[in-house]
Design a protein around this nucleic acid. Sequence first.
DNA 1: AGTACAGCCTGCCTGC
DNA 2: TGCAGGCAGGCTGTAC
Length: 268
Amino acid sequence: MPELPEVETIKRYLNKAIIGKRIVDIEILSKKQFPDNPKEVIGAEIIGIERRAKMLILRLDNQKSLVVHLKLSGQLIWTEKKELSTKTTRVILSIGKGKLFFNEMRKFGWIKVLNQKQLDLELKRIGPEPFGKDFSIGYLQKVFEKSARPIKTVLLDQKKIAGIGNIYANEALFEAKINPQKPVNKLTAKEIERLRKAILSVLKEGIKYGGSSAADQLYIKPDSSFGSYQQHFRIYQKNGENCQKCKTIIKRISLGGRGTFFCPKCQH
DNA sequence: AGTACAGCCTGCCTGC
DNA sequence: TGCAGGCAGGCTGTAC
């Protein structure tokens, strides 16, 4: 699923491909997923692309932005050559001489047209970016001490920390040697320090490999090629296999309705 | 205020 | 073989 590293990969690609180009046309195949009036942005030039949490923000020269959330199964595919429409294509943005396909199997994802005020409001609800300066040990201590929820549930809470999804939450907790079920207010100072470091490390690794395109995930890069971070998973979907550190069999449980993987020995 | 959970939607897997 | 039912999963709205 597209999390911070996947969306960051898409952002970097599109920054090279579509900046300075104009939106020529928008074809909406699933109204629910593009609820606004496309005329508000047709003719506008794309002047910048940013990522915030798992959202991609296309800044336009008319004070508006196109904000994209890929949710579980979204793809953004860029092409200047052949027609790449598929049965999960929901929106087609004609940009300059090319086309950007918004494909999304489950119909959870969306594209919104927001003005600056609406965008500020949307972004204000989300916690600090892991690579930003607000994501400090002090901030985490403050957030963690107020709650007894399992640490993994808190990692997935976008109001607390931006951009972490199920894959990177699992990987970070394994890296930090913390049990995903541990109440967050029971984490020691050392564990919080290890966790912060582990989050940055797995997200960085995810970006380095262009995100993860595992078998059941639909994320691919805008040029239709696969990310390769799935080859570097240490814990995610490794249930039944041996932990690479201690050989103990990796367990899978459901936590907050989400698949959770951990080594019972390393992460006690 | 914080927390839990149904619902959104589709394809895949399981069991009959 | 075919089909119904269950499940996964990010995030929002609602209920407690």
